[in-house]
């Protein structure tokens, strides 16, 4: 067992875990953050995607020892927490508006891949969006409305605040 400390969605976490425990299992089982999903366990489907120090990664391929001292963001950390509840971010709202989530199992990973794309200044260009989510498999949507949602969020993000 190794002592591992990191930030999840802005909150410090300290736990004892085997160093080779998958980050996915740490999040889901040790921390109860079940928004992160397992689809294949081999880095093919992207359902377990999280943001690690600003990069989107497959949490099934990350050993816990490598997240010590790092910053992690999961789907639970996307909406803004206010005293009156959570407010969806522009991307989540766009998924809701376009119908980007169907069965929802790929949605958390898809949102995080898209979040990184947008945070890096990604725009509404369809080919660029498709490349940004090529590591996230979806079997429900044909990707159409997911691409639409990310493009919409990119447009929304470009509008001046308050518009």
């Amino acid at each position: 067992m190794t002592a591992i400390r990191f930030l999840v969605n802005g909150a410090p976490v300290e736990l004892e875990a085997p160093g080779m425990r998958r980050l996915l299992d740490v999040l889901r089982e040790d921390l109860g953050l079940t928004g992160t999903k397992e689809g294949c366990g081999e880095g093919e489907c992207g359902a377990c995607s999280v943001i690690l120090d600003g990069d989107v990664v497959d949490s099934c391929l990350i050993p816990a020892c490598q997240v010590d001292g790092r910053i992690i963001r999961t789907v639970e950390g996307l909406a803004a927490l206010t005293p009156d509840g959570r407010i969806l971010d522009d991307l989540q709202a766009a998924f809701l508006a376009t119908g980007g989530a169907q069965c929802g199992i790929c949605t958390p990973g898809m949102l995080l891949a898209a979040r990184v794309y947008l945070d890096a200044g990604g725009g509404p260009d369809e080919d660029a969006i498709r490349e940004a989510i090529a590591g996230n498999l979806c079997r429900c949507t044909g990707y159409t409305k997911i691409v639409e949602a990310i493009a919409l969020a990119a447009e929304t993000g470009r509008r001046p605040a308050g518009a």
């Binding site: 880095g43 992207g46 995607s49 990069d55 989107v56 990664v57 497959d58 391929l61 990350i62 891949a113 990184v116 490349e131 940004a132 090529a134 590591g135 996230n136």
Partner: peptide, 9 residues
């Protein structure tokens, strides 16, 4: 190689 997630790691 792979896609973004794999390229990052």
């Amino acid at each position: 190689v792979g896609a973004v997630q794999i390229q990052n790691r």
